[in-house]
Design a protein around this nucleic acid. Structure first.
Lengths: 204, 204
DNA sequence: TCGTGCCTTGACCAAATGGTAAAAAATGCG
DNA sequence: CGCATTTTTTACCATTTGGTCAAGGCACGA
């Protein structure tokens, strides 16, 4: 997009930028933006604090970079819903993939949750430009399936929100579910539950 | 419990403690624990910072107090599920009440979410002693309804988690839903959606 | 009214924290 | 190798912030 300048990152730059964003994901997702310190991130990355600021202009720049990188992978499953596919099958696959990602990338989920819970102070615009168009596109797709009689009538937008809520909950509220569901195979039972919940919703 | 000393708060003490916890709820729910400052809370409360620390030992003490006060109101609807009632009716009433609370007390919801997302560093024990017993009690109640054939087979614990996730989502992720659902009456359409979702789940 | 004890505040402190500057050390290329 | 460029570090700074303290203000019972 604005890569017009072709930054041409050196091997060292690429390696260290990755180290920093990896460390930042770990620290930011645990403590939130204000709760995380550059020293913590530097320690996690195995670099010195001034060295971080050689690669990024500021703490906020790191945070924004991590968030942006995040959104791509985070929205990939939604993008993958195929207009040509069988509606129920597409949606159930989406739900399963979203649940898998909650267990596979809990830090990403929590970082995003942290940002949104606090009012998206550093992501507001990105929600409008990056998230909303895709959301509207897929909601319209589901609506078209309903109109064609291939799904029962329901509100596509609230359906998507419910899917997000129920799947990401296992990552975002893990501290709670770990206490409440201790001992059981959470991912397994969660999928059984969600499959039942949404399969019924999409069939009746 | 440990009120054995009967602190006997004076009128002024009662008034100012309330002011402080009200202000703290506002500030903590917006910025999280680390993101909030005593100066902000003091400003919101209309008191000086040293005066806050006359009433509470530390910033953390304020936070803990607000969280504890919170949990009572937060769990009231769950406690109100009546073992004598009609299962479907009881659960749908619970869901509706929980949704109402998400819109009525979004700050409480977000404060709790903030704490859990970051690993419940100041609430860990309370989850075990305060939350889990009630959770287990109500899960067992729902299981007994299933065993009696009054509800279709489902996992009571994941059901409760789903209800929490879908209702609290409208408070915790309000910054997101405000963008994605702008213009519509969110509470109204959310209830229509959730009623459909769970009514089907509890009937089929 | 007076004085005792509760309440409030201004001034201050030490630690933490985001960020800077300039020198030192690598790195890589001819 | 020689040298310019990139990378890293050491030392440091200004601000923020949780918390303290001693003195002053205020309420209220005797």
């Amino acid at each position: 997009m604005d890569d017009a300048t072709q930054p041409k990152l050196s091997r060292i730059q690429q390696r260290n930028r990755t180290r920093i964003t990896d460390a930042a994901l770990e620290i930011f997702s645990q403590h939130g933006f204000r709760g995380a310190t550059l020293d913590q991130i530097a320690g996690e990355a195995g670099l010195s604090k001034p060295n971080l600021l050689y690669y990024f202009d500021s703490k906020e720049a790191i945070h924004v970079d991590v968030l942006n990188r995040l959104m791509e992978t985070w929205l990939a499953p939604l993008e993958a819903i195929d207009p040509q596919g069988e509606p129920r099958e597409e949606l159930l696959r989406y739900i399963r993939r979203k649940l898998e990602m909650a267990f596979e990338f809990p830090r990403e989920s929590r970082l995003f949750a942290n940002e949104i819970v606090q009012g998206a102070p550093r992501m507001g615009p990105h929600l409008e430009t990056g998230l909303k168009p895709l959301f509207e596109e897929k909601a319209a797709l589901i609506q078209s399936w309903i109109d064609a009689g291939r799904l029962p009538p329901l509100d596509p937008r609230h359906l998507i929100l419910s899917i997000w809520a129920t799947t990401q909950h296992y990552a975002d509220f893990e501290a709670q579910t770990r206490v409440l569901l201790e001992g059981s195979d959470v991912q397994q039972s969660a999928w059984a539950h969600l499959e039942a919940l949404y399969a019924r919703m999409l069939s009746c």
